[in-house]
Lab assay of single mutants.
Amino acid sequence: MQGVVKVNSALNMRSGPGSNYGVIGTLRNNDKVEIIKEVDGWYEIRFNGKVGYASKSYITIVN
């Protein structure tokens, strides 16, 4: 499943599904990501070869 990031500035990509996990990357508005699965309001995603987590509130699913 594919998604597009929708933010005003930047979205942190984290090592786990929560804001208490470390930041491993930064996503920008309109970045395209691969959604692997949903975990407690977060998406596990793949972006630029990295796998991490981002809040699903800021990612819109596209077909």
Rank of each mutant, 00 (worst) to 15 (best):
I24F: 03
N48Q: 14
R46D: 09
S55F: 13
G41E: 13
G3F: 03
V23L: 06
G3R: 01
S15Q: 10
V23T: 06
E38I: 10
E38Y: 06
A10H: 13
R46G: 09
A54H: 01
S19A: 13
N20V: 12
N12M: 10
I24N: 07
N20H: 12
G41W: 06
R14L: 14
N8V: 15
F47V: 12
I35M: 04
E34S: 09
K32E: 06
K37D: 08
N30T: 07
A54F: 03
Y21G: 02
W42L: 02
V5L: 04
G16H: 02
I59T: 02
K6P: 02
K6T: 15
D40R: 09
V51S: 14
N8Y: 14
K6G: 10
V4C: 04
I59N: 01
N63Y: 04
V51K: 12
Y53C: 02
A10Q: 08
M13T: 03
G22W: 13
S57P: 15
G25T: 10
V7D: 05
P17S: 02
N8W: 06
S55I: 14
I35V: 11
E44Q: 14
M13I: 13
I24R: 03
G41Y: 05
A54C: 04
V4E: 12
M1T: 13
R14Q: 09
G49T: 12
N48P: 03
I45A: 03
P17L: 02
G52S: 03
N48C: 05
T60C: 05
A10K: 12
S15G: 10
S55N: 13
G16Q: 03
N63R: 03
N29C: 04
D31R: 03
I61L: 13
A54I: 08
K56W: 05
M1H: 13
M13C: 04
P17K: 02
Q2V: 13
I45N: 00
G18R: 03
W42E: 01
M1K: 12
Y21T: 04
T26A: 10
T26W: 10
S57H: 08
K37R: 15
K32F: 08
F47R: 06
K50A: 14
G22S: 15
V5W: 00
F47D: 03
Q2E: 11
G52P: 00
K32Y: 09
D31V: 06
V4K: 05
S19I: 14
K56M: 11
G25W: 12
N8M: 11
N29G: 08
N8K: 07
S15R: 07
Y43P: 00
G3H: 03
V51N: 08
L27S: 01
G49D: 13
N20A: 12
G18A: 06
S19T: 10
D40L: 10
V5I: 10
F47Y: 15
Y53N: 01
N12W: 13
V62Q: 07
V33Q: 00
G3M: 03
E44F: 11
R14E: 03
Y53H: 03
I35N: 01
R46V: 07
M13S: 02
G52M: 02
S57M: 08
I61Q: 07
N48L: 10
S15C: 05
L27W: 01
D40C: 05
V23H: 05
R14P: 02
K6N: 13
G3D: 02
K37H: 12
G49M: 12
E34T: 10
K6M: 14
D31C: 04
K37N: 15
S9P: 06
I59V: 15
G49C: 06
I35K: 01
N30D: 09
V33P: 03
Y21N: 04
I45E: 00
V7N: 09
Y21F: 15
N29D: 15
G16I: 00
G18N: 05
I24S: 05
K37S: 11
S9L: 08
W42T: 02
I36D: 04
I45F: 09
T60Q: 12
E38K: 05
E44L: 10
G41I: 15
G41M: 14
S57F: 08
W42Y: 11
N20G: 13
I45G: 00
K50G: 10
A10V: 15
G41C: 05
I24L: 09
D31M: 06
N12T: 12
V51D: 07
I45D: 00
P17M: 02
K6A: 14
Y43S: 02
I36F: 15
I61R: 05
G52I: 01
N63L: 07
V39R: 09
S9T: 15
G49W: 06
R46Y: 08
K37E: 08
A54L: 06
K50V: 13
D40W: 06
Y53Q: 00
L11I: 15
G18E: 03
Q2F: 11
I36A: 06
N29V: 05
G52V: 03
I61M: 15
V4D: 03
P17D: 01
N8T: 14
N12F: 13
G18W: 01
G22N: 14
S15W: 08
I36Y: 13
S19Y: 15
V33K: 00
E34N: 12
Y43D: 00
A54S: 09
V4H: 06
V23S: 09
R14V: 10
G16D: 02
V62D: 14
M1L: 14
I35G: 01
V51C: 05
E44K: 09
Y43I: 04
K56C: 04
E38G: 05
V39W: 10
K37T: 13
G18T: 03
V7R: 05
I36G: 04
Y58R: 09
G16M: 02
G18V: 00
L27H: 01
Y58G: 15
A54G: 07
N63G: 15
E44H: 10
R46T: 09
V4G: 02
N20M: 14
G16T: 01
S19C: 06
E44G: 07
L27Y: 01
G25H: 12
Q2Y: 12
N8S: 13
T26G: 04
W42D: 02
Y53M: 02
E38Q: 09
S15P: 02
E34H: 10
V62F: 09
E38P: 05
M13F: 13
S9N: 13
E44T: 04
S19V: 15
F47W: 07
P17G: 02
K32G: 11
G25M: 14
G16W: 02
D40G: 11
D40M: 14
A10C: 05
Y53E: 00
L27E: 00
M13Y: 12
S57C: 05
E34K: 07
K50F: 14
I35Y: 03
V51G: 08
T26E: 10
R14M: 15
I24C: 04
I36Q: 10
A10D: 12
F47K: 06
V62T: 14
